[in-house]
Design a protein around this nucleic acid. Structure first.
Length: 209
DNA sequence: TCGCTGATCATCT
DNA sequence: GATGATCAGCGAA
């Protein structure tokens, strides 16, 4: 099990997208951006911010471990983790080097490579559901742990293309699935976009009151 | 449409 | 040994 943390060398291209700012500013800028892995490309419609050591819901909250080490590095890298023993979920590391913040890619629209995506997701899956949800998005793109640590702006297999145009309207709300700090409105999605995941509050989150 | 539940395992305590 | 940044399938309404 090699630990795959690739450092961006000095002559690597700079990110095409400024990811080094505060995660709450970076996250909404990822909306309408496109993630491409081979034939499959996904336009992002929904993301979620995780603010490193200041965020009880972040995987980086309890400090650096082998799994989350890439989050503590420079922005522009993929953090991919295995969730619930079943799914992979992909994050874009952002914020300044050492801040350990990241943005979870929650949902998107498959805009290229539908056939390949459907091969991975299943023959009966509707287009709308191909990448609507973190696990689904990673599966549609074929992202697994082996892509973790990859740089999104170099010549690696996974690329992040900045949004051609910002969304007309961005909505925010509580994060999904987290059992702590669920009240922080750090989920961002494109208002009215059908390719946004269905909202399900964590059953472990405290009741709204 | 809503709510519930099993699946399944890497990671951390 | 417990816990999830989830999903699909099911049954009820």
């Amino acid at each position: 099990m090699p630990i795959m943390i690739s450092a961006r060398s000095a002559d690597s291209p700079e990110p095409d997208l400024d990811l080094a700012g505060p995660v709450l500013q970076v996250a909404p800028r990822l909306l309408n951006a496109v993630v491409r892995h081979g034939e499959v490309a996904v336009r992002l419609t929904e993301v979620e911010a995780y603010d490193g050591a200041d965020d009880p819901a972040s995987h980086a909250y309890r400090g650096r471990t082998p799994r989350n080490a890439v989050m503590f590095g420079p922005p522009g890298f993929l953090y991919v983790y295995f969730s619930y023993g079943v799914h992979w979920a992909a994050n874009v590391v952002c914020g300044p080097d050492g801040k350990s913040s990241a943005v979870l890619l929650r949902a998107g629209e498959v805009i290229d490579g539908h056939e390949v995506a459907r091969t991975r997701r299943g023959p009966r899956v509707k287009d709308r559901d191909l990448a609507r949800g973190p696990g689904r998005l990673a599966q549609a793109l074929g992202l697994t742990g082996e892509h973790g640590g990859g740089y999104l702006f170099g010549d690696g297999p996974v690329r992040l293309i900045p949004a051609a145009a910002p969304p007309a309207e961005i909505a925010t709300g509580p994060r999904v699935g987290v059992s702590v700090a669920a009240d922080r409105p750090w989920r961002f999605w494109i208002a009215g976009d059908p390719y946004v995941s269905a909202y399900r509050r964590s059953p472990r989150a405290p009741a709204v009151g």
